[in-house]
Computed example of a mutant assay.
Amino acid sequence: MKELHRTIRLLYKGQSQRARRFRYGLIAFDAVTILYFIGTAALPATDYMMAVNIGLGLLILLDLAARFWISENRRRELTRIYNIADLIVITSLVLGPLLAESLGFLRVLRGLRLIHAYHLLRDLRRESLFFRRHEDAILAAVNLFVFLFVTTSLVFVLAFEEESGLEGYIDALYFTVATLTTTGFGDITMTTPHGKLLAVLIMVVGVALFVQLARAIFQPSKIKYKCPECGLNRHEPDAIHCKHCGEPLKIETEGSD
């Protein structure tokens, strides 16, 4: 049992080529599950889809259990937002066949799987120099994508009949984007107080996320690297000294030709 624990720990936290490939495999799995949840959000539930959902739920549960097992602080692990989101998603996947009348609500819950993307970004920060160089822009894009998908799912559940299927989901996406960008074509509108409040939330948060993305794209690129002396955590990609205190830095670079 100790050997199995050590093997799993090395796979999740080791620096070997095998461990890196394993973590990239997890990233690919999470990307596929997220795309699957987006692609099936408006499709009618079938026996095959429910079987796939249960299988995905068990795989996500296995990954969560492994991370919990090797954690040095399991209580803290339980409070992490992406683990809480995973627990909710697992519950919605496994209990889906028993709660057929609530599938619309469960689709929104499955959108929380996107929160796990932030956990993946933490791994990419450690693994990829490209990610460290463009972290702000990537995080801003992920924030916008997460908000867009979760909000679209919520609009679809609140404002469209489940039988409307893919066409209704596209209308929900269209309304979300039109509201988020404050374009306001007015051909699809919310008529209930809850719907109007949701539209206000989409506009306020959406504009903020767009501004954040634009700023991250056009501002000078900096790398997140904490100075061991003063704690400044943003530096130029080619910096060799901290501009605040002068402490020598050892920022990983790809070198020059």
Rank of each mutant, 00 (worst) to 15 (best):
L10A: 15
G14K: 04
Q15A: 15
Q15H: 15
R21D: 13
A28H: 04
T33M: 06
I34H: 00
G39E: 00
G39D: 02
T40Q: 02
T40V: 08
P44D: 11
A45E: 07
D47C: 11
M49S: 09
I54L: 14
G55W: 04
I60S: 06
D63G: 05
I70V: 08
R76I: 03
A85W: 02
A85K: 00
I88C: 06
L93T: 07
L95T: 08
E101M: 14
L103D: 10
R107M: 09
R110D: 09
L114E: 00
H116D: 08
D123N: 11
E127K: 07
R132S: 05
R133V: 14
E135Q: 08
A137G: 01
V150L: 06
T152C: 08
L154E: 02
F160H: 01
E161R: 10
E162K: 11
S164E: 07
E167I: 15
G168Y: 08
Y169V: 02
I170A: 09
Y174H: 06
L180T: 02
L180D: 00
T181D: 03
T183Y: 11
G184L: 13
G184N: 08
G184Y: 14
G186K: 13
I188K: 08
T191I: 14
T192W: 08
P193F: 03
M203A: 14
F210G: 10
Q212C: 04
K226I: 14
C227N: 03
P228L: 04
C242D: 09
C242W: 04
K243I: 09
I251T: 02
E254N: 14
G255N: 10
G255H: 07
